[in-house]
């Protein structure tokens, strides 16, 4: 911190334009919060820029950006929302890139339980947490998985919805819901579930959760550099370590 303050004062004292060291406010889909924090830590070691992170549901950020929220970049949990922003002229279309493919986990806070798709019905009467499908892509994926398992009607009264995937996780972690759909990145490292017990929902049960980032403010050097950094090998390693994958065929 001190060195950062120092370098700032040197920059200003020596008359450099602050374009060299910029600050960016980045809106990040809740599932990516742990990864983003680690990425920013790494990024700030390498660059003079500073990144401020704000976490929430992708839909909330989409609505906020539409209404002029001061974000410089947006890491969504889907492709649709950043793409719509680009089409509406609120984001830089050429900057739209996938940065991660997420995985869904059916999870309980209790350790060493065998969780499978059947746990959904064995959990008779118990609540099942998920992110709100209208607001969060992970919620939509959970909804698809439930429907593809043919349990849509049976579970209709058991579903409780978090505003975003972090709240769904919190509902299960506090024990208020015995079971819930969360992101692998929230409960695991290196693709292995570390806390509680869970079932990695087979990828074919829902449409792939391809997460896209987009630049909102072209003037902001820090935001541009951060999105650039996201594509680098160092960032990839961190992103992979949280259980995300990437298909390199995707632009």
């Amino acid at each position: 911190m001190f060195t950062r303050v120092l370098s700032f004062s040197i920059l200003f004292a020596s008359g450099f334009a602050p374009a060299l060291a910029d600050e960016a406010r980045v809106a990040v889909a809740a599932n990516f919060s742990r990864s983003a924090e680690m990425l920013v830590e790494q990024f700030e070691l390498l660059q003079p820029h500073e990144i401020e992170l704000v976490f929430g549901s992708s839909a909330r950020f989409y609505a906020q950006v539409q209404n002029g929220a001061p974000f410089d970049a947006f890491l969504s949990a889907d492709r649709e929302k950043p793409q719509l922003l680009a089409e509406e002229g609120l984001a830089v279309a050429e900057s739209l890139r996938a940065y991660a493919i997420g995985r869904l986990v059916l999870w309980t806070a209790e350790p060493s339980l065998a969780i499978t798709g059947e746990s959904l019905t064995a959990n008779a009467g118990g609540k099942i947490a998920l992110a709100n499908p209208r607001l969060a892509p992970y919620g939509l994926a959970a909804r698809e998985a439930i429907d593809n398992l043919g349990l849509g009607e049976q579970l209709a009264d058991s579903l409780i919805m978090g505003e975003n995937i972090s709240q769904a996780y919190q509902f299960v972690a506090t024990g208020n819901a015995p079971l819930g759909f969360v992101a692998l990145s929230q409960v695991g490292r290196n693709g292995v579930i570390e806390q509680g017990s869970g079932w990695l929902v087979p990828a074919e049960l829902h449409s792939p959760i391809r997460q896209y980032a987009v630049l909102l403010n072209e003037e902001n050097a820090a935001a541009g550099a951060f999105l650039e950094f996201l594509r680098g090998p160092e960032a990839r390693r961190i992103i992979y370590s949280f259980g995300y994958t990437m298909d390199d065929a995707e632009p």
Partner: peptide, 21 residues
């Protein structure tokens, strides 16, 4: 937990509708 008819009261409903535009 935003359950229709159980816990989704007016204020929460408005919040969700605004977020979903």
């Amino acid at each position: 937990g935003n359950i229709p008819g159980e816990t989704r009261v007016v204020s929460v409903q408005i919040y969700e509708q605004v977020e979903a535009l």
